[in-house]
């Protein structure tokens, strides 16, 4: 009896002011605020860092054109790179970067897609147990190791087989091929695994063979994902500095063929950055190269987004 009374009393005292009761903050609401605050803080810091990096590189990169009054066309299309003498034609490096990037992507994609199909469709068990760890390992190897192997194995091999110094675009392509292969493979595997199982079942139930199912249904519906994988691989190849620098020969001249020394935007940056003085033309010119790299990576990102959107749109119409 007493207990009932007590409970009644307590309820009465609480229920007097419903407005206050329903508006006051409890521990749950405070936790909510806190969580929100922390998330916003993190996002804010990241945005700040990215924005200041963009601003920094852009402001330094355009100094070549605003302070040193080099014309943009000369920079983009000139072929003479001698910053000490005031010549900063960046075309050789731009061509070198695109050449190694596309060549590596073209060579790596068939291998990557083939491996991914094996891992998802042909032998999922072996794929998971054997190939997955191998690929993860390949991703984790530092680029200097790839470069070193390139220098010790690929360059002498090329020298032996095709002659010349062995340094050049083809050696860089080979090293980059090995470096982007795991990136493209693992992302392709993800996109193949994301293909709904019922597509495969439907195709098999119609009497299609496994090959027909893989090539016409599974690969087709994974195409946006595979393209994204290739672009990520290209972005990695485009941005790779050290390994490329070690095998490409670093001659800032227009590449005439695939086996003569050349250079890329990144290799030129790492080679030259230590030898220049802040604020001078040679230094600013390097920042301009960095700006091109930045713009290219933004472009790759935008491309990935466009592809993802296209892939969705196609089936909502």
């Amino acid at each position: 009896m007493e207990q009932t009374n007590f409970q009644l009393k307590k309820q009465k005292s609480q229920s007097n002011d419903w407005s206050a009761r329903l508006h006051h903050a409890t521990r749950a609401t405070r936790e909510d605020w806190m969580g929100k605050g922390i998330s916003y803080l993190c996002i804010g810091v990241i945005i700040l860092v990215v924005a200041s990096m963009l601003w920094f590189i852009t402001s330094k990169g355009v100094a070549t054109f605003t302070q040193n009054h080099v014309s943009l066309t000369k920079f983009l299309f000139g072929t003479n790179w001698a910053p000490d003498q005031g010549h900063i034609g960046a075309l050789p490096m731009i061509v070198g970067s695109f050449a190694v990037t596309f060549a590596a992507a073209i060579v790596a994609t068939p291998f990557a897609v083939g491996t991914a199909i094996f891992m998802t469709e042909i032998s999922p068990n072996k794929g998971r147990k054997l190939l997955q760890p191998v690929i993860e390992l390949l991703v984790g190897i530092p680029s200097v190791v790839y470069g070193f192997i390139g220098l010790a194995v690929v360059v002498p091999f090329m020298r032996h087989v095709v002659g010349g110094s062995g340094f050049g675009i083809i050696s860089a392509t080979f090293v980059l091929f090995v470096m982007v292969l795991p990136t493209i493979t693992s992302m392709t595997v993800d996109s193949l695994r994301a293909v709904p199982r019922h597509f495969k079942e439907a195709s098999l139930a119609l009497g299609a063979t496994r090959w027909q199912t893989v090539s016409r249904v599974i690969l087709r519906s994974a195409t946006p994902g595979i393209l994204t994988a290739v672009i990520f691989g290209m972005a990695r190849a485009f941005g790779e500095a050290l390994a490329v620098q070690m095998v490409i020969g670093n001659a800032a001249i227009m590449p005439k063929n695939l086996i003569s020394p050349a250079s890329t935007l990144t290799s030129q940056l790492t080679t030259g950055i230590g030898d220049t003085i802040d604020g001078t033309l040679p230094n600013n010119a390097l920042w301009s190269l960095a700006l091109i790299l930045l713009l290219m990576s933004l472009f790759f990102n935008a491309l990935v987004r466009v592809i993802a959107k296209r892939g969705q749109l196609k089936h909502e119409r």
Partner: peptide
């Protein structure tokens, strides 16, 4: 011997 499944599963075509 054709088959139709529980969940409608047309291809994304």
């Amino acid at each position: 011997i054709g088959m139709v499944f529980q969940r409608p599963n047309p291809f994304a075509k």
